[in-house]
């Protein structure tokens, strides 16, 4: 049975974000294309390949759309947990699988439909112009799917985080953290290594982290990405989110995390990451000529101060 009521419910709660997403994509493609044509008419086209690829590649509006996608996942999952809506939803005669798949499909269609329409309109604007020849320099398939798969994997990650977090604020914050976690950790470890006299450069040779799973970079279609990574990870995140949603213990809704089993992971992870950030901040403010010893002392001072406060914060978050 098609759960029309669930679609109505999701539309009711998330329609403003969906409209905002549509507007952003319209600005990003057909409106941007119109302005670009004007610019080309007056200033001429520089590097043809770059100009057309740049038009269909990421910009500040792509970053806004990522923000809206994270918010959309929050409106689909997290916001219900802050209120009596969670009880209302769970008391309805639908299975958790039906509920999750409706939420997921609703959100995914809210991304793919306006994105595809806007991309096609942008393409059409160029086709109709005097600059249609520029499209010969554009790999349309790659431009379309690289960005789309980037959105897909970010949305799936946001949904997964939504199923494990207990309310919308923790969902949004954790999604942003996890979106940059591998690269952030790499940077923190490199500062740690550098401060202690190790060669940190090799860490940045790990292309898997610096490129393949750097999801926000996929909106930049001018980079050469393998589409397999966002596809595989997107599917993986979706399956994990489905599993997690099915087994969510409702009694923890409104808390920081839905699964108490994850508390030790976060109780360890948050203070360590916080301490590494604290160490980094204090070591970089030490004057360059102060010497490695002072830098190391400053690092550990920052590390200890940060671990103290992040541990306090973590205890409060986890209600320990």
């Amino acid at each position: 049975m098609f759960p029309k009521a669930l679609w109505m419910k999701e539309w009711k709660h998330a329609k403003m974000v969906c409209f905002a997403l549509f507007v952003i994509y319209l600005i990003n493609y057909p409106i941007a294309a119109t302005f670009m044509i004007d610019s080309w008419k007056y200033s001429g086209v520089g590097n043809e390949s770059f100009e057309i690829q740049n038009l269909f590649s990421g910009n500040v509006f792509s970053v806004f759309s990522i923000g809206l996608i994270i918010l959309l996942a929050g409106f689909l999952i997290g916001i219900e947990k802050n209120s009596k809506r969670h009880d209302f939803m769970m008391a309805l005669p639908f299975s958790r699988t039906q509920q999750f798949l409706t939420k997921y499909a609703f959100g995914f269609l809210s991304i793919i439909i306006p994105y595809s329409i806007s991309f096609a309109l942008g393409y059409f604007v160029i086709v109709q112009s005097d600059f249609s020849y520029l499209l010969d320099y554009l790999n349309t398939f790659e431009s379309f799917f690289t960005t789309l798969l980037g959105y897909f994997v970010i949305y799936s990650l946001a949904m997964l985080i939504g199923t494990i977090s207990g309310e919308i604020k923790s969902q949004v914050v954790l999604t942003i953290i996890f979106l940059f976690l591998p690269q952030g950790l790499l940077m923190l470890l490199s500062v740690f290594a550098d401060t202690h006299g190790f060669d940190a450069n090799r860490l940045f040779e790990l292309e898997f982290i610096t490129k393949d799973i750097f999801w926000v970079m996929y909106v930049n279609t001018m980079m050469d990405f393998s589409l397999m990574y966002p596809l595989i990870f997107g599917i993986l995140f979706t399956l994990l989110a489905w599993f997690s949603f099915k087994h969510t213990p409702s009694e923890h809704s409104g808390e920081f995390l839905m699964f108490p089993n994850l508390h030790p992971v976060f109780a360890l992870g948050i203070p360590i990451c916080g301490a590494l950030v604290g160490g980094m901040f204090l070591s970089v403010i030490v004057p360059y000529h102060s010497g490695d010893g002072v830098k190391m002392i400053a690092y550990w001072l920052g590390f200890l101060i940060a671990i103290f406060f992040t541990w306090k914060i973590t205890k409060r978050l986890l209600r320990w």
Partner: peptide, 14 residues
């Protein structure tokens, strides 16, 4: 089966 069960919580916030 919950088509036959309606839960009315102590507030109508939902």
């Amino acid at each position: 089966i919950k088509q036959n069960v309606v839960f009315v919580p102590d507030s109508a916030d939902a």
